[in-house]
Design a protein around this nucleic acid. Sequence first.
RNA 1: GGUCCUAUCGUCUAGCCUGGCCAAGGACGUUGGGCUUUCAUCCCAAAAACCCGGGUUCGAAUCCCGGUAGGACCGCCA
Length: 484
Amino acid sequence: MPKKLKVQTKKIRVRFPPSPTGPLHIGGARTALFNYLFAKQNKGDFILRIEDTDKERSRLEWVQEIIDELKWLGIEWNEGPDIDGKFGPYKQSQRLDIYEKYLEGLLTENKAYYCICAPEELEARRQEQMSRGVVPKYDGKCRDKGYTSGVIRFRILEKKLKFDDLVRGRIEFDAGLLGDIVIAKNLENPLYHFAVVVDDYEMEISHVIRGEEHLSNTPRQILLQEAMGFYQPIYAHLPLILNPDKSKMSKRAGDMAVSDYHKNGYLPEAIVNFMAFLGWNPGTEKEIFSMSELIKEFSLGKVQKGGAVFNIQRLDYTNGVYIREKTPAKLLKLCLLYLPEDHKNFSEKTLEKIIEAVKTRMKKLSDVTELTDFFFKEKLEYDKNLLAWQTMGDGEVKESLERSYHTFKTFKKYITKDLEGVFFKEAENFNREKGHPIENRGYLLWPLRVALSGKQASTGPFEIAEILGKEKTLQRIQSAIDKV
RNA sequence: GGUCCUAUCGUCUAGCCUGGCCAAGGACGUUGGGCUUUCAUCCCAAAAACCCGGGUUCGAAUCCCGGUAGGACCGCCA
């Protein structure tokens, strides 16, 4: 077995090793982000490695989805399955010969051995140990039996271990409590603990930054490193992302797939900003960070130790901030997907105006559909009672609408500011005639806005009128008048 | 059950290492108010937390010990 002891290079090299058994989740994406941030900040390399040793559960389409969503988020790697590097290949299924070599070495040195215990038998023993209240661990039955087939087990050395975690400080374990672990089903089928250790070594990974769920796996991996004469990478275990009930955010819990947020109209900048604050904080009062600002400010030392509950309201807020920051042209481009088919009948300029008019009401891009639907409809459907402001009766609603109708007729071109000036005066006049409080413009403006939008809540009437133009505006008011 | 980890407003967190500047700061959310024809944006304000118990000390959110609670792991998954 190759015994060249690699000295840890000065170069910072980190990796994100997803297993393609499902979509990329927020938890994984956050881990990828922290690795990326750390690498970029230190002018190091960020490697994407696909851990597809589980042939049954791994699927090519998941590999693609993980790649697509990571890229969408703006997390890019220096080496990976789609970008060759000198440490490739970057899919474990293509590195079988490498693992086999190390496996054979471990076997000949008697640091690993074949085990022929049947899974059912193992399970039964596990249950029995559990019921007796002892730690379930493999009893070493097949050790030193000289079997030449079966699964390959790694001999766990009984010793105390310690390592320094970058976010948690010194961690100590007693490996004597661990049972011999299966590291491969056979020479051609390595398992996680073994493969990850071999790859991190072969790929000269300097820092292993991963979720806390791996903290208790670390001693096994350190033992494996020692058995093969590898250097030990520096570890940093990130706090878990939790469900509202504080349980670990699992792959099955709800729609935590990055692709779901993507489809629903969350912006990558918002997701990245939000994820960065799940377990990390700059220590200042700045809350909105771009990727490049994060690269500058990020620090593992400021990473929280306790788990963080995923708070969707905060994501929504952050998303809104980024939406409002977009230029009209960019926002329109992003929203196109969520607009009705016939949006193509409208000019780009008009569409931009429509989006601008509803921008502050959007939490996510998909909201644009409902927010703007009335601009595209030929005929508005709404309850005529909606037209009444406060205590207005039908007769007054009609008068109010007719007043607006005639005022609109006097304009050639509809420009929000011009309309506003005249209508505000008109509203005062109307109130004076009707004996309403002068400042309560709703008597004139509310029925008008409802006539133009058909909605309880919407953009103001003058912006709508400007976008609709004279013909449609007049037509909508007329049909409101006909309603009452 | 064992091992390991964690513990500040409902949530994300600052402060903790280097005790006093903390009658604990910010943000989301909530509530109230302002602006306003509505909703949203924006602005202002309020309510809201140091898990518990000991100890060390003139003084503890901060240090120590013990509880308690939560979580992760204990796979021929990763």
